[in-house]
Design a binder for these strands. Structure first.
Lengths: 338, 338
DNA sequence: TTGAAAGCGCTAACAT
DNA sequence: ATGTTAGCGCTTTCAA
């Protein structure tokens, strides 16, 4: 007694072959497009595939091909960064690029440089390639990946470790924004507040700022430049200092700094932009919705992710890719600097 | 001529077996702990495993066991929601729970109810179970999953479709917060602004509010309750209305609404909490950093994710799980309502 | 252009 | 307690 109703659950390659009276091999070839198949049979196969609603068992396919059709995305899972929309937006950009190309996106958490999760993924061969969304200082992740001979792309830093990278034009953006503010300067001192200078992004920003001031023939306002600012307390002192020096316009390194600045200014009764103008070198929706909306540089995290994914998939398919890709920015001139 | 140096790349089950002079099966059993193995051989196997740095080929394991050790997470990929930290935080909670149990987390984007990505995952059998982070009105996702006989858990809604769900105590939270505000009411009208009433979370909030007012023996302040508020324009009118009615305290449905409210109040020169007190039924870091910090209910998205994952993994392992789980909240009483 | 058959590395029934 | 063996569903030589 043969039981066949179990077959009905999941149609597989062999079912199509049997239906068409041809071999599995031919069906496989028709679908993958790899071997030579007469266009006649190919059509039949496709028709039958659709009719029987076939979709390949990826586990078997992966196993056989030795590729998972997964790409892993290393994301900081520290409490702080977990709230930062950048990584999520970037991740969705990656996913949106991968899905139509038949790849899926695997989340790899990395808490404070802990690479154990990534190591497990590598060991178990569950991803064909990796995207690093926040390259760390030490380059340990890059090193690990290089040793494991796994293709990878980093988002947001120049290729210090020979990695393929994709970055935003922070320096150029900061240059443009600073230049704009200098031009429209109802003459007053310009302030700059940046976070940790160990992050290359802040170094780029600083370079852009300096270049803009010099291009405008001005002097670098060293007294009102604050680098490596970290935490509410420091920020509070910085604000006080800026106000005392009658700084008329302050450029904030990112949206978090900017939020603090806005709140602190409000708390001491300063009105934006009447008393002081404010701009941010990194936009976020909270800066959008503020009234007045805050002048800011807008970088599209989603595009960064999508581009990184696109590059990585190209690499996996053996295509040659450029070592370093730079994405542009948008300058949103809004009420806070009018 | 036999070439062996290729073997050296990846050590597999058979290498261990050969090294120890036992069979693959025994090694497999020792590792999985499924069959009976003498503690003596087991130790030897483990020692050898470590020594040879063996880690199983998950593709082969998956294929053989018919499980991927992946769980898929459906995440809204609309532009708006992509910025919402909730989903990312939830996702990281899921990932943190899955990783130590040997599971990985697959991102499944769902743009405006487009289930094609999910369907592909289902068809290709790339995930053993699914977590839905934002159940939709229509329950189509649930239906699809049920038909496909794939275990799933939904985050953030009561089990309308017979699904296993995990939710936060929004009603209870709103009750507590409202009660607190009523008690500390330097007598004045209480305002309430909620978003779309099609979201069950807002219905829960409303219930909590009403219950609190009734428990306090008060009258429902219908004139200052605004339901289904949506967009900046509407919100602006609501604020004006609230101010005209000399509302002394306003409860905002979530952090976005609250941000708008704060900004608009600031724009018309109202000082929090002197002129008007403000609270939010959903906290975020922006509410934390505001000065004064905003009184709010805090729900831990990360815990929601972790709990959902834990439930799902239990289900996959055949354990019985409760149909509905409710997570608590924290009430952050802060400067904005002092 | 097509087919037969041999794997891919693991698990699990069955035998011992 | 351990070994033998037969798959899992695909891809891919190698023949025809």
């Amino acid at each position: 007694m043969t039981v066949m109703n179990d077959r009905s659950k999941t149609v597989q390659l062999e079912d199509i072959a049997r239906e068409l009276g041809i071999s599995k091999t031919t069906v496989s070839r028709a679908i993958s497009g790899k071997g030579r198949v007469s266009s006649d049979t190919r059509e039949k196969v496709f028709e039958c595939m659709r009719r029987m609603n076939y979709s390949p068992n990826m586990m078997a396919k992966s196993f056989s091909e030795k590729r998972t059709y997964n790409i892993g995305v290393v994301i900081p899972s520290d409490d702080i960064d977990t709230e930062t929309p950048f990584f999520q937006t970037c991740l969705m950009g990656i996913s949106k690029c991968c899905a139509p190309r038949g790849y899926d996106t695997l989340v790899i958490g990395a808490e404070r440089g802990d690479l154990s999760h990534l190591k497990r993924i590598i060991g178990s061969r569950k991803a064909d390639g990796i995207i690093i969304t926040r390259p760390m200082q030490n380059g340990l992740t890059e090193q690990l990946l290089t040793e494991s001979e796994i293709p990878y792309v980093t988002v947001g830093r120049s290729s210090e470790y020979g990695a393929v990278t994709i970055d935003s034009a922070h320096k150029e953006g900061c240059f443009e924004l600073t230049s704009y503010l200098l031009m429209n300067n109802k003459p007053s001192k310009l302030g700059l507040i940046l976070g940790s200078m160990e992050q290359s992004v802040n170094r780029s920003r600083y370079e852009g700022f300096v270049k803009a001031v010099e291009s405008a023939g001005g002097l670098i306002p060293t007294k009102t430049i604050f680098l490596g600012v970290n935490g509410e307390m420091q920020l509070r002192r910085v604000i006080e200092d800026l106000l005392q020096r009658e700084c008329g316009c302050v450029i904030c390194g990112d949206d978090m700094i900017c939020m603090y600045v806005i709140n602190m200014l409000g708390a001491v009764g300063k009105v934006i932009p009447r008393d002081i103008r404010v701009a941010s070198l990194y936009n976020s929706m909270y800066l959008d919705m503020y009234s007045p909306p805050i002048t800011a540089l807008s970088f599209r995290a989603s595009d960064l992710g999508a581009t990184a994914a696109s590059l990585l998939l190209d690499m996996l398919e053996g295509k040659q890719t450029s070592q370093e890709t730079m994405l542009g920015f948008e300058m949103l001139i809004r009420g806070s600097t009018m």
